[in-house]
Design a protein around this nucleic acid. Structure first.
Lengths: 249, 249
DNA sequence: GCTAGCTAATTGCATATGCAAATGACAAGC
DNA sequence: GCTTGTCATTTGCATATGCAATTAGCTAGC
């Protein structure tokens, strides 16, 4: 209810007032306290609650709107925005959506799954700590019955405990995580590798053929959420981005 | 001189005043009229010139500072910033700088150059128009005497006429262009390809080995500036980026 | 010459105020 | 019921004003 929302906005005394307001609301959104769709109290309410002038509150909200965290409309008020599904340079991609955008039929299968502590080899490959509880999944995504991408994924069960009781039969882990977890930071690495014999067989290509490897690790605050290696047959995929010298366009 | 700078800032009557000011100054910077280092008139001067209040001028300048186009310091004033050399996701990279950052010795050579109209094959590969005048360069960059990346580049002489009389003996075309041309938009494509026999020989790898291919095209406003294909031996390179759900971090 | 301190220029921040624009909700009229 | 108009809420924009913080450049004193 509204009272809850108001109580949650706090000033911490560090730095300019408008920035305290901005950070406070940003943290409520990024922390999940205000999920997308939540309506943000109107400027007058925040103004009275915080003892700041409306222009100061306004400045904080305008900035959050420019950052894409909230959307504002006259009379309707301010609501928490849904995080954009895509990024200017490289999508946090929903593979089913990607395949269907190309007009192809999507199919997917879990090839292997193992929950528990990582083996030394796995820990090395994904940069894991030895004692961590993780889920380890290998899945294959297909487009029009042809292999599209081979996915090997680690899910950190300490951060996403619900994943332990999910079998990912319906929803691929990437999409499931988008709905059941939050992330605040991601790191991508892109490289070209020859296909290992095992992987090549699964992808239906020749061993040694050039593949594009996308490695992505995702965190929420400091806690690791997931790590994934996506292996795309190189001859069928390319990733495109567009931007200007001062940032994404 | 100062008078010139003031004369150049204009309101166009479209939209909010603060945004007119912002766009006007942005265009002066992006258009090259105010190169990096130029000092922007102080708020009071703009205020009087434009007949707007200081807070309105202030708002425009604060936003430009947030966009990274200008830097502001109390008392010192406001100056046009240098465009950042790197982008969050993928650098517009200076290859010498990249090599030296790795602590390796950089060397480079122009392997071939041809100026004129593109052949049909070249036009197809780089998406050129037939009649255009271009420079076509093939260069090899080396790190510690080992091939680092093979570069094939098109420079549009209509947009960058100075390139016609530059031999690129000292400075690789990428770095030269950073200093002698402006760009407002770039498009990247990343893919994995097997090395062609010719390219493999130049890079000192086996034909068919997995390589990372970066294709980049750059424009200033609507005019094409350059197009380049960078072929990296896949086993020695990866590209890393880091960002959050609402944009680059 | 060198240093310490002062002054003034410039940006940063917050407030109070007023009006404009969009529009959800409701009422009035048909 | 449907449409039309009115009202009230909420955000958007601009102004005027005042003070704070930073610091380049000058000055006074040694």
């Amino acid at each position: 209810m509204a009272q809850d929302r108001l109580d949650a906005v706090k000033l911490d005394g560090a730095g300019p007032v408008y920035d305290q307001i901005r950070r406070s609301i940003r943290d409520l959104i990024l922390g999940g306290t205000w999920p997308p769709g939540t309506s943000v109290p109107p400027e007058h309410a925040l103004m009275e609650l915080l003892g700041a002038s409306r222009m100061t509150v306004h400045r904080a909200l305008v900035q959050l709107a420019r950052e894409g965290l909230i959307t504002r409309r006259r009379r309707s008020g301010t609501v928490v925005a849904s995080p954009p599904a895509t990024h200017a340079m490289l999508d946090i991609l929903s593979i089913p959506a990607e395949v269907e955008r190309l007009g192809q039929r999507y199919a997917y299968a879990v090839l292997a799954r193992h929950d528990g502590r990582p083996s030394p080899e796995l820990a090395l490959r994904f940069g894991l700590k030895r004692g961590e509880r993780i889920a380890h999944l290998v899945t294959l995504h297909q487009a029009d019955d042809r292999p599209h991408v081979l996915e090997e994924r680690i899910i950190h069960l300490a951060t996403v405990p619900a994943a332990a009781s999910e079998d990912f039969a319906e929803t691929p882990p990437g999409d499931w995580l988008l709905q059941h977890s939050l992330w605040s930071q991601a790191e991508h690495a892109i490289s070209a590798v020859p296909a290992e014999p095992d992987d090549a067989a699964l992808l239906g290509i020749a061993a040694g053929e050039a593949c594009l490897l996308i490695e992505r690790r995702t965190w929420n605050q400091a806690a690791p959420v997931t790590a994934v290696r996506l292996l795309y047959p190189g001859n069928r995929h390319r990733f495109v981005g567009r931007f200007g010298p001062y940032g994404a366009v």
